[in-house]
């Protein structure tokens, strides 16, 4: 009763190209799939949009998640503050003793 295809998988997929305003637009997504015998978890995010013009030129516009990046920056700053303050405190205590 246990599934064979368990584990973590990273997928990058291209969607169906669409004609929009004389351009061919193809969405690109990146997914993280975690499967275990009795369940699964999927996280899918848009990675980029590919724009193909009639003259044959193709442009790939990456999609940046500003909210997530800002969250990581804030978390990183808090962690950095904790590490630096801890280091300074340890140094002060050593100097005193």
């Amino acid at each position: 009763m246990f599934r064979a295809n368990t584990g973590l998988q990273r997928q990058r997929a291209l969607g169906t190209p669409r004609r929009v305003e004389g351009l061919t637009v193809t969405p690109e997504s990146q997914a993280l799939v975690f499967r275990w015998p009795r369940g699964a978890w999927v996280w899918n995010r848009p990675a980029a949009i590919r724009v193909e013009r009639d003259d044959g030129t193709t442009e790939r516009l990456p999609i940046v998640d500003v909210t997530r990046i800002s969250q990581w920056v804030l978390g990183g700053l808090a962690a950095l503050f904790a590490v630096v303050s801890l280091g300074l405190t340890v140094r002060n205590l050593k100097e005193r003793s």
């Binding site: 997928q11 291209l14 169906t16 997504s29 997914a31 999927v42 848009p46």
Partner: peptide, 9 residues
Amino acid sequence: VSVADPSAV
């Protein structure tokens, strides 16, 4: 798992 498709996002 079909949510991993680009059409879902």
